[in-house]
Computed example of a mutant assay.
Amino acid sequence: MTRVVFLLVPQLHLLDLAGPAQVFSTAADHGLGHTLHYTAEQEDVPTAQGITLRADPVLPALTAGDLVVVPGWRSHTLRDNGALAAATLDWLRAHHADGGTVASVCAGADALGRAGLLDGRRCTTHHDVQDELARRYPRATVVRDVLYVVDGRVVTSAGIASGIDLALHLVAVRHGPAAAARVAREMVVYARRNGDEQQTSAMLRHRAHVSDAVHRAQDLIDSHYGSRLALTDLATVTGLSERTLTRRFTAATGLTPLRYQQELRIERAEHLIGHGTTVEAAARAVGFQDARMLRRLRARTVLSPGA
Rank of each mutant, 00 (worst) to 15 (best):
V5R: 01
P10G: 08
Q11K: 15
T26L: 08
A27C: 05
A27F: 07
A28P: 03
G31A: 13
G33F: 01
L36I: 10
H37I: 03
Q42T: 12
E43M: 07
E43C: 07
A48M: 13
A55H: 03
P60S: 14
L62F: 09
T63V: 12
T77L: 05
A87H: 11
L89S: 03
D90E: 12
L92E: 07
A103N: 00
C106T: 02
L112H: 03
G116C: 07
R121V: 00
R122Y: 05
T124N: 06
T124E: 06
T125S: 12
H126V: 09
H127P: 07
H127M: 12
H127E: 08
E132I: 07
R135W: 07
R136K: 09
R139D: 15
V142T: 13
V143Q: 02
Y148S: 00
R153T: 07
V154C: 06
T156H: 00
G159D: 08
G163C: 01
A181I: 04
D196R: 09
Q199C: 15
Q218A: 14
D219W: 00
D222M: 08
S223Y: 06
Y225S: 15
Y225P: 08
R228F: 06
A235R: 10
S241L: 03
S241K: 03
Y260Q: 09
H275S: 10
V286L: 13
A299G: 05
